[in-house]
Amino acid sequence: MIDSASIYSFFTYYLVLVIILQWSSRSIRNRRLAISLTLFAPLLILIIPFSGLPVFYYIRGATGELSVITVIILSGVITGKFYNIEILNKNSTEYFYIVIFVIGLIFYITSLGYGQFDPYGLAYGNLVLPSGLLIFTALLIWKKQYGLAMLLTVPVIAYETGVLESNNIWDYLIDPFLWLYATGRAIKYLTGFVKKQNTA
């Protein structure tokens, strides 16, 4: 069944494959060939049938839909690599990953049944969180943090228009892969920060 969530998923895995192929095709000297391979091979990989189902179905079965923020970050990686356009400012995203790490830590621990509080359960059809995010976005724009503002606005718009299967705003904001990535980035940043303090 083709719906917005299927198209979104297909696009997500396409981005992931493009990044992997871009990295692995660095040794190809012909730049035009490398770019063509990087952009078109993922399409073929995703639609190749395996035991009667396209590869896309298997990846989707394993990972489901990734969050909108993950897709924006993946898109940022590609625009940076191919067009030298940085969507996100490095200084601000380091703080962003620390925030994602802290929020995700509390969020996933409680979601695994630690205690009776369930932030995921509270967010079905809840308008407070998306409204708050939009207010915070206004604050970000006022502070000229356009990249971060986009990171929060796009998921809220996607949530309000029902792009994914979920009607829970958390699914638009965070997923386990994003949290793991943010954890790695946060640890790297904090370790560097501590080292810097010690050498100062």
Binding site: N89, N91, S92, Y95, L122, N126, L127, V128, L129, S131, G132, I135, F136, L139, K143, K144, Q145, Y146, G147, L148
Partner: peptide, 29 residues
């Protein structure tokens, strides 16, 4: 891009916003 900092002029508005969100969340549910 302007340098981002969680301290200074960001601190108070951020804290107020987080507090309002938490209160609003529980009030809404």
């Amino acid at each position: 891009h302007k340098e981002f900092s969680l301290t200074g002029s960001w601190l108070i508005p951020s804290l107020v916003l987080i507090l309002a969100l938490v209160l609003g969340w529980f009030a809404y549910n």
